[in-house]
Design a protein around this nucleic acid. Structure first.
Lengths: 300, 300
DNA sequence: AATTGATCATAGACGTGGTCTATAGCTCCT
DNA sequence: AGGAGCTATAGACCACGTCTATGATCAATT
């Protein structure tokens, strides 16, 4: 089997028309090039170059070989450039899985900052439920998942993200509740708006109420945080929603938090990656970014 | 600079999905493959494979690299196949320069035999005058020239071919001359038909007559042996022509040779190649064939 | 004609790096 | 629990690619 290094030498010798010049390009000595070409010629049993005192020129057979090798070498050069680009994040892709609401209300500044630093990296955002995201990860369809904790899966490595606080909120229609402290029993008298059944937040709140002996049955189920906000503002009921996602509405007063006589447990955002699977460079850089304090990225 | 041998290993590892299988394909051991892949990953700073106990699988970056390297390796394989084909003459070309008459009356059986043995070799026949043929050779446009000797050029290596005998012939119109032996002087009384001025045969006969103190001035000049034959048969004059090219006509009696009182010097066919330039394999095989006794090739 | 400065070829020494053997660790399957 | 895959690692070894030094040839000078 022919040593492919020889083709590299052949390529440069043919391209420069000189064994000496090829040697310089390859940072080796001229006798090495001479030797390499001879090896190639011997292994084919075909003379590839005419030699004279001005340099070398391809024989017809050499021209034939060159027509293949040139393309091959160019492809390798392209490959090496591409790998360099992937390395310094001028190129590549980052595939993240998560819920739309986390993307919009939590990840957005990170994504913006990342994209600004590395405009060559294509971002793929796949939304789905937590089990779907985990499946995507295991199938290799995404590099990184962003979901609510807890995640218990030995194949996954989970890093803690921000801590979020879910709460019940209402709009002006229920202004009477603004300064009251409600018991769970009382709360359940009102129409409740929850996120759809298969979400992690929904499961958590259901379990929480069960632990207090109550069953929470929503009047309305919706599929997006925006609708939770909208319905609460319009007075259709009381939405259970992540407080951090509605800071604007709370500030401007279009929504207010309903005080309860129990403390709502915080919910933790987690970043999941596959354990024992190497991270793409693009993904590990993104995780580094997320781990830094946010101040750096929102300061402008 | 990356050792291109590593790409060969990478290609097989990716293609087979297993370092062990790649090792078998490459006739090396598994640790060598493992080591090679590691080198490649280190030099890129990018992990190319996921490893597990069933084998290996490409990472997204590995897939990117593979998309280039696969094409590159396939090109090299094609190149190697092509070179093997050139080597055993399943492919290639043979470019010969010469006069049409030599091709038709002398080379044809060799060309036929060669083509039959190596149908993959394309034959290029370039006709021209002797100086043109020499120029073609020096420009590398042909591998081999077939011309009349003598050739005196230090850059050329000349091999002797068949010896031909030129003679004067006439048709039935001049039947009176059939059994006579003519002097040159007497011959010149008749209309003479010669090949055109720039041919080697023409130059030779002109010089011959001059050496005897005569000047030969043709009535008719033609550009092909076929016309020399045709004009002589029709009785338009006496043609100077290579005897071996008209063996059929002499046998059937449509032409007869005119006896002269001097002996016509034989003319030697020569094969020219460039000295100090390697012959293509196709060309050297052809020369071998021509050097063999003809019996082998015309026996059927 | 002699000299200089290119070119590639050759010979032989050197030492690096690719390959090997041996072994460990892991996962999956029986 | 044992076996049969797989890959990773360590360390030894030697082939082979590289080097230096030199020769041979040619072309363009001087």
């Amino acid at each position: 089997m022919i040593n492919y290094e020889l083709y590299k030498v052949f390529y440069w010798a043919a391209k420069t028309g000189s064994l000496s010049k090829a040697a310089k390009s390859l940072f080796i000595t001229q006798p090495s090039v001479s030797h390499a070409i001879k090896q190639l010629e011997d292994s084919f049993g075909i003379i590839l170059f005419y030699r004279n005192s001005k340099g070398v020129a391809l024989t017809p057979e050499g021209v034939t070989l060159y027509s293949y090798i040139e393309k091959s070498q160019i492809l390798i050069s392209l490959a090496e450039e591409k790998m360099a680009a992937l390395k310094n994040l001028d190129s590549g892709e980052l595939r993240i899985g998560g819920s739309d609401s986390l993307f919009k209300h939590y990840m957005l500044p990170y994504l913006e900052s990342y994209h600004q630093k590395h405009p060559g990296i294509k971002l793929h955002l796949n939304h789905g439920t937590t089990p779907e995201i985990i499946a995507f990860l295991k199938e290799g369809k995404i590099d990184l998942g962003v979901v609510r904790m807890p995640i218990i899966d030995p194949q996954l490595e989970v890093m803690r993200g921000i801590q979020l606080q879910d709460c019940f909120v209402a709009g002006s229609y229920y202004a009477e509740l603004k300064d009251k402290v409600l018991s769970l029993e009382l709360l359940l008298q009102y129409p409740i708006i929850l996120f759809s059944r298969n979400s992690r937040v929904r499961m958590a709140i259901t379990e929480l109420f069960q632990s207090y002996g109550y069953q929470i049955k929503p009047e309305i189920e919706v599929g997006s945080v925006d609708l939770l906000i909208e319905f609460a503002r319009k007075g259709l009921g009381i939405s259970y929603i992540t407080k951090e996602f509605i800071s604007k509405e709370l500030e401007e007063g279009s929504l207010f938090e309903i005080q309860l006589d129990i403390k709502m447990p915080p919910s933790q955002v987690g970043f999941m990656i596959m354990r024992d699977m190497p991270l793409s460079h693009a993904a590990s850089k993104f995780i580094e970014l997320v781990k830094e304090p946010m101040g750096n990225h929102e300061s402008n």
